[in-house]
């Protein structure tokens, strides 16, 4: 109820406004809350259904309703999803693929972020002839639909001896991540006055020294934004994962899809849902803990070129 007093219209209106007007204000305010609440339900419903379904037994799923709470909470589906459900021929659950994703994502994020930081530093602070063209070419690369590089990339990974391997996927993610990470750092470093670099140069500091002792200490926010952006993208990637992996090296998204869309045996919806939540947990966790930076990455990655 106290929210009502925050209404800008209510504040603006004279205290002696007609009571009629207040009633319509109040009704509008309630309508507003009803709408906001209804939308919140819409966005939360799938998550709610996933969690409750994953805690039910198959019998209860078949006889009960989609939106009912589980009568007997059981974690069997979670155990199965983690360690024994079948992704095609193998039946080791999601666990090995989860670790594949970790092994792929962590190095790829770190490498792409480091390269992006150095590139952004050069483009923003050490302008040379052609630097702008290089930046435009990199930026342009962010927008290509990856379908256009899938075929030659598959051949190239074969030539490099990395076909179907996790290092191969790391290479792919780093290369196609550089554009965005460079963009993030460049846009951040461009706001740091060039006089700072000039003064440091006069004092005899070199290229790496300036980066190390001036720019890096200022970079924490943009590093966080970039790492989160890269982590979310690479962890959630499916196209590269499904194109360039083979049995045993698949990332978790590919394994999840194999579990859900396998046509053999009884459909275990509770296991599907538990597996989906497991695959989503790392990025959800990052979002809950560092949502502010996540949003900043989203808007930086899309709004400004």
């Amino acid at each position: 109820m106290t929210d009502f007093t925050h209404s800008p219209a209510a504040n603006a209106a004279a205290p002696s406004a007609a009571p009629q007007r207040n009633w319509s204000q109040l009704a509008l305010r309630w309508l507003l809350f009803a709408l906001l609440g209804a939308f919140a339900l819409f966005y939360l419903m799938p998550l709610f259904v996933m969690v409750t379904t994953s805690l039910k037994s198959l019998d209860e799923i078949r006889t009960g309703s989609l939106i009912s709470l589980p009568r007997d909470v059981t974690f069997d589906a979670w155990r199965t999803a983690w360690s024994s459900t079948c992704t095609g021929v193998q039946c080791e659950g999601l666990r090995p693929y989860f670790w594949n994703s970790v092994l792929m994502t962590v190095p790829a994020v770190l490498l792409a972020t480091m390269l992006g930081a150095m590139n952004g530093y050069v483009i923003a602070q050490w302008r040379f002839k052609g630097a702008n063209l290089i930046f435009s070419l990199m930026l342009f690369g962010c927008f290509i639909p990856f379908q256009v590089v899938l075929l030659p990339m598959a051949r190239m990974l074969g030539i490099m001896g990395l076909a179907g391997s996790i290092p191969g996927l790391i290479v792919v993610h780093v290369i196609y991540g550089i554009g965005f990470t460079t963009l993030f750092f460049r846009n951040y470093y461009v706001t740091i006055p060039a006089e700072l670099t000039k003064a440091a140069k006069v004092d005899g500091a070199g290229f790496f020294r300036i980066f190390w002792s001036i720019f890096l200490p200022l970079s924490l926010p943009i590093v966080v934004v970039t790492v989160i952006w890269q982590f979310t993208n690479i962890w959630n990637d499916f196209l590269f994962g499904v194109s360039f992996s083979q049995a045993g090296t698949q990332p978790v998204t590919v394994a999840l899809n194999n579990i859900v869309n396998s046509t053999t045996g009884v459909k275990e919806y509770n296991v599907d849902m538990a597996a989906a939540i497991i695959a989503a947990l790392p990025t959800l966790l990052v979002y809950v803990v560092a949502g502010k930076y996540f949003i900043r990455g989203l808007t930086a990655g899309s709004v400004k070129g």
Partner: peptide
């Protein structure tokens, strides 16, 4: 923040 595969899986069930 979710993978499209997760979204697809959830809505397929719903």
């Amino acid at each position: 923040a979710l993978s499209m595969i997760v979204t697809g899986t959830a809505w397929k069930w719903i």
